[in-house]
Every structure is written in structure tokens, then in C-alpha cells.
């Protein structure tokens, strides 16, 4: 049986960065403990015989559910509606944080 990998604080920080979640030092430690607890539990699956078993990604068995691509005005936002919940807008646009640094 494979052993549960130990999770380092560095890894926790890396995952937090990937998920774009800001975490504090205290949280980092708490998350490390929680990760270990959870990974230890789910390691149990390694004892189940799954050879020759197909994975299930969805349970309905439905395939190719299509509909006509018709414009439905009733189900469209106006520009005003689309922007209604945005904290910051400019000339009818969403304002997003800068992600490319100027040199």
C-alpha cells in the first residue's frame, strides 16, 4: 500500500497560491493538520480492488443533450443588469485588477 505523502508548509503555500487563496501563517499550520487528517482518511481507498473497473463521471447516462441555439431576449442581461453587482465599473465595463506588471 502506498503511504500518505507528508504535506509540507511550503506545499500548503503553493496550493494556496494555485487556488488564489490568501492564508496567514496560523492558517498554514491549521491547514497542514487538516490536510494530513483528510489524506489519511482517503488513503483507505487504496485497499479497494478497482482493477477492471470503469470510472463513473456522471450518473444519468445521458449523452449529447442539445438544444436549438436561439437568442432569448428574456434571458439576457442588459448592460446595466450585468454590471449591477460589480464593485467597480468604468464606462460600462468591469474594472479588473492589473495582473501584468509594468517594467
Amino acid at each position: 500500500m502506498k503511504k500518505t505523502p507528508n504535506i509540507t508548509k511550503k506545499q500548503i503555500q503553493h496550493i494556496a497560491n494555485l487556488a488564489n487563496i490568501p492564508i496567514t501563517q496560523t492558517e498554514q499550520k491549521k491547514l497542514q493538520t487538516a490536510f494530513e487528517e483528510t489524506l489519511n482518511t482517503i488513503a483507505e481507498l487504496q485497499s479497494v480492488d478497482i482493477s477492471n473497473v470503469e470510472p463513473t463521471h456522471q450518473v444519468t447516462g445521458l449523452t449529447n443533450i442539445l438544444r436549438e441555439d436561439i437568442v432569448n431576449i428574456d434571458n439576457m442581461f442588459t448592460q446595466k443588469q450585468a454590471l449591477a453587482n460589480a464593485k467597480q465599473t468604468h464606462n460600462g465595463y468591469f474594472v479588473v485588477p492589473r495582473i501584468i506588471e509594468e517594467k
Binding site: 496550493i15 491547514l31 478497482i50 470510472p55
Partner: peptide, 26 residues
């Protein structure tokens, strides 16, 4: 969110996610 990010990341998806979906079939 972070645990999901980890178990779906490269190198771990097979060990976790795909295994889970197979046990789901069982």
C-alpha cells in the same frame, strides 16, 4: 478548495480522483 486543488493536480489525479470515480462505479 485547497484539498481539491491538491488532489486534482498533476501526479495526484490518478491516485485520488480517478480511483474515487472507480469506487463510485462499484
Amino acid at each position: 478548495i485547497m484539498l481539491g486543488t491538491y488532489t486534482l493536480s498533476k501526479g495526484y489525479a490518478d491516485q485520488y480522483y480517478n480511483t474515487a470515480q472507480k469506487v463510485r462505479t462499484l
